[in-house]
Structure formats: structure tokens, C-alpha cells
């Protein structure tokens, strides 16, 4: 089946039939030149061409496994090539989608853990008592109504100083948990329920609840100012507000959606 690549001499005389003519016969095509009768006549009288035609016909069945193997390998390669070729486009599409969805993701993804680089963490959970008496854990972006009561539950991996604030669509920063005019001291521990309940006011729309815990005592006004700045930067959209970014502090946040 395999022929050496030989450019020093021909295997058949020029008066013989070429492989092209014989291949056309094998494929069931009718060669225009030489005319079919002449081809037939030559094959009847030339043992070399007749043997070559038989060889090409045998080739056809012998080649089937090799062709199948090549086809299988090619299918795998094409899939790989497709994936490789498509990877940049897919990544770009994913990045675009992520950017487009970021405000909504911020709204719906929990932001209960934010910390510094030392492995410490701060978690904020919010329990809501609705007007009908039903109590449930607030989900990120969860719906509440004016008049609902909320309680804050904090988990922290280190002792520190804590404040919990609300940033609303009116651009207002409300301190919910503190110790008078100072942050509240908190011990290390899980699911620490903060004293007191907050009754939600009539301001409708999204409100971002932010827990800020710092290792050192800090000025509460600084935290409030930082909250206002972030609200202003986000055009008073609490869903798009970034972290307060105070040094040495951990943050946890959750957005609630207050509607009638």
C-alpha cells in the first residue's frame, strides 16, 4: 500500500494509465480522457495497469481502519482546538457578564465575611420579626417592611470594637449597634446576639447593613463619615456601595430591600 517517494524514475510507461485515471474508475467516475473504451482496452491488454487497478481497489478496503482512526483523532483534536480557540472569547464573555451582573450579585450574594490578611473573619446575620410575628433569617437582598423588627447576630474570630450601621437610599447613615458615642467592645465568639431590636423606619428601598469591627478603638464619627462617602460614590445606591476601608478593620455587610 505504501510507495516510496521516488523522483528518479517512473513506475509505469507514459502510455500506461495514470493513478488519476485508475482512481476515477475506482470512485465510479467516468474519465473523459482517455475515453472509456480506450481505458477498457488498455486494461485488457496491460498487466501492469490491471494489477495497479486491483491494488487501488484493495487499498480502499484496507484503508478503512486507518481512515476511521484518523477521523476519531481528528474529532478529539477539533474539540480541543475549539476549546483552545474559544477560551479567550468565553473568558471575555464571562467577564462581561460578571461586570453586568455585579450590582445584582452584590445585592444577592452574602457579604458576611470580609477581613484583613491575618485570617480573621467577621460574620453578620440578621434576624427579622415581621408584623405577623413570623421570624426568619434575612437573606441577602431579602425583603422587609417598615415596622419590621430586626436583631443582629455577630460572629468574630477576634476581640475588637464593633459598630453596625445602616446606609440607605436617602444618603443617611444610621448607627444601630454601638456603645453610646463609641464602638461597642466585642469578644471573640460565634453567633453573639447584639442587645436590643431595631424597628425599621418608613424609608423605602435598599438599605445596606454594615458591621465594622476594628482591633483598636476608633472614632464612631469616622465610620459614619466613611459610610456617607461610600454612599455618595455609589450615587446613594446602597447595593453598589463598596467597603468602608478603615485600616485594621473587618467588615461584613448585607443588603435588605424595604418595601411596603
Amino acid at each position: 500500500m505504501r510507495a516510496e517517494l521516488n523522483f528518479s524514475k517512473r513506475l509505469r510507461d507514459e502510455s500506461c494509465l495514470s493513478d488519476l485515471v485508475l482512481d476515477r474508475l475506482v470512485a465510479g467516475e467516468s474519465p473523459a480522457r482517455p475515453d472509456p473504451a480506450a481505458v477498457e482496452q488498455h486494461l485488457g491488454s496491460c498487466a501492469v495497469c490491471s494489477a495497479r487497478l486491483d491494488e487501488l481497489r484493495r487499498d480502499r478496503s484496507l484503508a478503512a481502519p486507518m481512515l476511521a482512526a484518523g477521523r476519531r483523532r481528528h474529532t478529539v483534536l477539533r474539540r480541543r482546538r475549539f476549546l483552545l480557540a474559544a477560551a479567550p472569547a468565553l473568558l471575555a464573555a464571562a467577564a462581561t457578564l460578571l461586570l453586568l451582573l455585579m450590582p445584582r450579585l452584590r445585592e444577592h450574594l452574602p457579604e458576611r465575611i470580609k477581613g484583613g490578611g491575618n485570617g480573621a473573619a467577621l460574620l453578620l446575620d440578621v434576624a427579622v420579626r415581621h408584623a405577623d410575628g413570623k421570624v426568619e433569617a434575612l437573606q441577602p437582598g431579602g425583603r422587609v417592611r417598615p415596622g419590621d423588627m430586626v436583631r443582629f447576630i455577630v460572629s468574630t474570630a477576634r476581640p475588637g470594637h464593633l459598630v453596625i450601621m445602616g446606609l440607605d437610599t436617602a444618603g443617611k447613615v444610621t448607627v444601630y449597634v454601638a456603645d453610646g458615642e463609641a464602638p461597642r467592645a466585642i469578644d471573640r465568639g460565634a453567633r453573639q446576639v447584639m442587645p436590643g431590636s431595631i424597628v425599621l423606619d418608613a424609608t423605602l428601598g435598599a438599605e445596606r447593613l454594615v458591621a465594622l469591627e476594628c482591633d483598636l478603638r476608633f472614632n464612631l464619627a469616622d465610620a459614619v463619615d466613611a459610610g456617607r462617602r461610600q454612599l455618595d460614590r455609589a450615587s446613594r445606591d446602597p447595593r453598589r456601595t463598596g467597603p468602608l476601608g478603615l485600616p485594621g478593620c473587618f467588615e461584613a455587610a448585607m443588603v435588605m430591600d424595604k418595601r411596603e
Partner: peptide
């Protein structure tokens, strides 16, 4: 075409 496929020159 000439040496491998055994075509003649007019082909």
C-alpha cells in the same frame, strides 16, 4: 504528478 501519480505530460 509525473513520478508519483504516473500521469503523462498531456494529463
Amino acid at each position: 504528478y509525473y513520478y508519483v501519480d504516473q500521469m503523462n505530460q498531456d494529463e
